[in-house]
Amino acid sequence: MKENTSHKIEWEIISKYLSGEMSAEEKLAFEKLIDSNPEYAEIVSASDKDLGLIQEVNEIQQQFNVDAAWSEVKSNLSDFKKANTTKIIPLFSLQNTKKLVQIAAMLIIAVGLGLASYHIYNDKLAPYQSISSELNESGKSITLADGSIVTLNGKSELVYERSFAGKERRVKLTGEAFFSIAKNPAKPFIISVGNAEIKVLGTSFNVNASNKHVEVLVESGKVQFSLAKEPDNKIILEKGDFGVLQEDFLEKRTQNDENYLSWKTQLMVFKAMSLQDVAKVINRTYQVNIQFNDTAIQNLPITTSFNKTPLNDVLENLCRPHNLTYEKSGSQITIKKELK
C-alpha cells in the first residue's frame, strides 16, 4: 500500500525544492501543490528534517574523531586492566612489616661513627644500615655514601646500603621521606617501598607510604614508579607530577595541596581553610595530634602562613584572634574555646 503512493512521489522535484535549485516560478508552483496536498506536504517536511539530520551527522562525524578518542581511552584502560590482573602481595602486610623490622633491627648500627672508623670497619660491618625517626620527630636527615640526602618525616625508616658498591644504589623505605638524589646516570638509585619500586638517576622527590598506599611527588628530574614484582607496570613522573599506587593500581594524579611538603619545608600556607583542615596540616608538619573540645570552632576559616615557625608560636597565632586557647601535653594538643 505504501509502495503504491511512494512511486507517485517525485523525489527529484522535492530534492530540487529543498536544495534551493528551483526558479522563482517553479517554486511558486510547487508550493501551491504542497498547499493543496497535505500528504505531499508532510513528506516534504519530513525530508527537510532528514536533510537537517544528515547534515548534523556529517558535522558530528567531522567534529569528533572516534579513532583518536578510542586509543586515548583504551590506553587509560590497559593500565588499569594490567594492574588489575596482576597478582600483588599486599603492601605493608603484617608479614612484610615484621620482616622489615627484623632486618632493620638487625642492621641498626650506632650512629656517630667517624668517617675514619667507617673505612677501618668497612669490611667487618654489615653492608646495610638504617635510620629511623620517632613519631614526633620530623626533619631528620641523612647524607648517603653517594652524596644523596634523605630527610625522614616522623615514624619513618630508611634501610640503605652503606657504600653503594654494586651497580645500583638501593634503599628501602617505610613511611615518608624526601629524597634529593645525587646525579649518577651509571648507577640508578632504587627505592623499594612496599610492593612499589621507584627508580631514578638524579632528582628530588617526596615518597609517602602508608596503609596500602604509596605516593610520590617529584620536585625535579624524572622518576620511574613501578610495581616491584612487575617492573613493566610503570609510570614515568616528571617535575611536578604526583604518582599514586593504591593497592595495585598505579596512577598519575595532580597534587594541588600547597602544604604537601610542609613537613620538610616547615612552610605552611592557609587560604580560607577550616581550622580542622589546618590542624591536619600542623599534625603532619609537627607530628602532633590536635583535637578540639568544641566542634563549632572546627570550621573557623583560617588565612595565614607560617615559615619555619616554632609550634607554640603557630598555635598561639591561630588561637588568639579567635579567642581560643590550647593545651599541650606531649604530642597531644587540645584547642579550646575560651570561657568568659
Binding site: S6, I13, I14, S15, D50, L51, I54
Partner: peptide
C-alpha cells in the same frame, strides 16, 4: 544530478 539527488533523498526517507 537531479535524478541522483532524488534517489538519495528517497533512500534516506
Amino acid at each position: 544530478v537531479e535524478a541522483n539527488m532524488g534517489k538519495a533523498l528517497k533512500a534516506f526517507r
